[in-house]
Write a protein that binds this DNA or RNA. Structure first.
Lengths: 357, 357
DNA sequence: CTGAAAGCGCTTACAG
DNA sequence: CTGAAAGCGCTTACAG
């Protein structure tokens, strides 16, 4: 009668017995960590295969003080931006024989520390994170103290003693705004979640403002929406912005996810996109290209950024000590059907009456 | 001079010394696993806080033979369906104090076994998986032999000795096809990835065929697209289907992700959606509702399904032995602008000429 | 209520 | 090239 308990999973001792050698020799074969005779190696390999032996990582990690696992913190799984970087991260990790722990903050900065603590208890080799604000983040301070290597993804710390992989959020936002100015727009609104609380949100906003200032235009009207809200919520929030006489003709949105929802909301308010109102996003999520009209946006290589962050982390783990820098990936403006020339009757005053559908 | 090595992370021994007690007492406090005097408890709690002590999970797991971690296998992170179930899984896991390992198969069944082996080496309490075909899957056979509990998500095994959380793919696909038939369509095509290789793909296809048969209509034309391909690829693949004289008026797509790409491709071929061709999806991803026209589809509660699968797994881990069943979640037809009544000139013959844009 | 001791599955100097 | 022994950080009977 066999023990039900864990089905007697083989240990290194089981393998050693079957291969007629010591556990040390089995370990040397498995890890290629020392000289083993061809004969012994063959016996061990045979036993490993027959028993389907895989060393227990807890035993390995405890003794060797090395656990080939990476902790990953994302704000959300369902935003395609983070899904993409996660895909890049995990596939690179797999190639490097690393397991990946994932945890989502649900955009709540106050959860970041607890999540990082939970991850640290696993004793990973390092972490990859997208946090709200890399310049004021207890979780990162904790990692610094614990001397656990980490790389930020999408964050853009001002204090660049932190490793990060990002795009030039300021420049990209400035450029896409400038493109709208060039298309004749002069009444802008900036639509975002609570952008003050994230470093990339602030940079994107600042880029928009900078482009307008450079063109001698007033700063954008502001619409701060609940990022997690429904299109119905967004429609409600946009009513004030679009109901007045000075309706903006161009909405610069802080990200694509939001821009898609805003486009839908604006349409149900009775405006045409882009004939009445042009809409620009940020990120370049694949699905936004499939819409008709397609979303004008800033294309960012999110998956490659995830992969690059993982590669950088692997270098840190291997003991390299490159200067901490924010590695900026190239972005690209993607023109799209949601942006067109400004309407010709842009003299202000009463425009099309907003109607709810 | 302190050791650089791992910053001398405190161990249970460090805490014991500082609290003037034995490691056993510290362990009892941390795990609430035995009687401790109020006084000793206070000293330990103080020391734990001061030292920021978190027990090393490898030590805990090795000794207690219990590791509060779950392995999750998804086909892809970037398909919103799996991103959603992952979100449901991870948030439920967090509430139950479980860490989550994630790995993607990239839709390649041949990677499933290796991924599961890697996960098993971590000694997780259980696994949650979405595999290609739950009826023929080495990875699942392996899990059965290892007696590691697992629950399938989205899979729909015929052999229901396996725990699964899914929707009635057959019924839902039959229903949405029937709705198109009721709208007057009689020339159908079924558009999918390589549906023969996944259990849910087969059921969805069968449901479509069944609805047509019941209405006395011929089976659908078939377009098997590379699911991971670009819209350009899809346009190329659809040219043959739509170029002939007997152009279908209704495309039933095996999932929303594909349906969005197909809708874009069909439009660039010169057809109007839905005036010339109606398109139906499957899954109910949020973003498809934002499109104009919105995607008609089958809404499935993907996040709730992930959460339910995790809950079921937790029960299995706790030693409950409920009969293995496929738990079917309710689905809902979502009408949308991509589906309309069949065009009136449905007498066959040459329709609108396909043009490439 | 408390602590000493054993041991989980491994790896790694060390001695041969 | 090989194995005996120690020990990684914990938990858990066991004895008191």
């Amino acid at each position: 009668m066999t023990h039900a308990r864990n089905l007697d999973r083989p240990t290194i001792g089981t393998v050693a017995r079957q291969a007629r050698c010591s556990p040390a020799t089995v370990s040397r074969v498995i890890n290629a960590s020392g000289p083993v005779s061809a004969d012994a190696r063959a016996r061990v390999e045979r036993a490993v295969a027959e028993l389907r032996f895989r060393p227990d990582v807890h035993g390995q990690s405890l003794r060797s003080r090395r656990y080939r696992a990476i902790g990953v913190v994302v704000p959300s799984y369902t935003n395609p931006v983070f899904a993409n970087s996660l895909a890049g991260i995990e596939s690179t990790a797999r190639d490097a024989a690393r397991m990946v722990f994932t945890a989502a903050t649900d955009y709540a900065p106050e959860r970041e520390l607890a999540i990082v603590e939970g991850l640290l208890a696993q004793r990973p080799e390092g972490l990859l994170l997208t946090v709200a604000d890399a310049d004021r983040c207890e979780a990162l301070d904790r990692l610094d103290r614990a001397r656990v290597p980490y790389v930020l993804v999408h964050n853009h710390p001002a204090d660049s003693r932190r490793h990060a992989v990002a795009v030039d959020n300021f420049g990209a936002s400035r450029d896409i705004t400038a493109a709208l100015i060039a298309a004749g727009h002069c009444r802008f609104a900036y639509v975002s979640g609570s952008f003050r609380t994230t470093d990339r949100g602030r940079r994107r906003f600042d880029g928009c403002v900078a482009a307008l200032a450079q063109a001698g235009l007033p700063p954008p009207a502001l619409a701060e929406l609940d990022y997690m809200g429904s299109p119905q919520d967004h429609r409600r929030d946009l009513t004030a912005l679009l109901g007045g006489g000075e309706t903006p003709t161009a909405l610069v949105c802080s990200n694509d996810h939001l821009a898609l929802s805003v486009a839908a909301a604006v349409r149900t308010l009775g405006f045409s996109v882009p004939d009445d109102i042009s809409i620009a996003g940020f990120d370049g999520i694949a699905i936004a290209r499939l819409m008709t009209p397609s979303l004008a946006t800033v294309e960012t290589p999110t998956q490659a950024m995830g992969a690059a962050a993982m590669q950088r982390l692997l270098r840190l783990i291997d003991g390299e000590r490159p200067a901490a820098t924010v590695e900026l990936f190239p972005y690209q403006l993607r023109s799209g059907g949601t942006c067109s020339a400004a309407p010709s009757d842009q003299t202000g005053g009463e425009r099309r009456r907003a109607t709810t559908t």
